[in-house]
């Protein structure tokens, strides 16, 4: 039974991707499909990032080790959707105009922030195999604390895209703040003990 959970989580995490593929083939993305794809992939990145971050607190609260068994995979899915998000931007919006890409990264703060978050996720993804965990030793934990920086940058990236109603940024921002707060509270508590 327990063996089945991992493949199940894996398949579930691919559902948003499958739906997007289906909508592409059905030509069901609305009149501005590029915009739709970039919004969807961006939002799913943030969602997976938050789900991955919630695993450790959930383990502590429920005392179920099961949660942390999927943390790495969920984090890698955040990287997967972030890569799609970046690819949509590069392929469909910039159409491989590399100079324009460089300009955008340096000139537009929301892209600077979003791209930085992506680089962090990429670094975490590349150092996620067990070999790397062993190799980096103590530094691995330090490096992977950057995931919180990526989450905050992701929320800022979203906030700077929204124009009139900041509801979604408030929602995801509150979740990230909650997770970060729990983490801070927990480490403070365990230091005292």
């Amino acid at each position: 039974m327990r063996k089945l959970i991992k493949p199940l989580v894996f398949v579930l995490a691919l559902v948003p991707f499958a739906i997007l593929l289906l909508r592409i083939f059905q030509n069901n993305l609305g009149p501005d499909p590029v915009q739709e794809l970039s919004l969807e992939t961006g939002e799913w990145t943030l969602r997976f990032l938050i789900i991955a971050l919630a695993m450790t607190p959930l383990r502590r609260i429920t005392a179920q080790v099961e949660f942390t068994r999927h943390r790495r995979m969920l984090g890698l899915f955040a990287l997967f959707y972030a890569t799609l998000h970046l690819a949509v931007w590069l392929v469909f919006l910039l159409e491989f105009r590399w100079v324009a890409m460089a300009e955008e990264i340096f000139e537009r703060p929301y892209i600077t922030v979003g791209f930085s978050a992506y680089l962090i996720l990429l670094a975490l993804g590349l150092t996620s195999p067990r070999v790397m965990v062993r190799k980096l030793g103590k530094n691995w934990k330090r490096l992977h604390k950057l995931v919180y920086v990526a989450a905050v940058l992701g929320v800022v990236h979203l906030l700077w895209i929204l124009r009139l109603d900041i509801g979604p940024a408030v929602f995801y921002g509150a979740l990230v703040a909650l997770l970060l707060g729990y983490r801070a509270w927990f480490s403070l508590k365990s230091r005292r003990v």
């Binding site: 592409i24 993305l29 501005d32 915009q35 159409e95 537009r108 700077w160």
Partner: peptide, 21 residues
């Protein structure tokens, strides 16, 4: 616009593989 370029536009409707910029 400080957040995006204004020199081109996406003429709607588009499909993913026939994009008219």
């Amino acid at each position: 616009h400080p957040r995006w370029r204004q020199d081109t536009e996406r003429r709607l409707p588009q499909t993913l593989f026939s994009r008219s910029r």
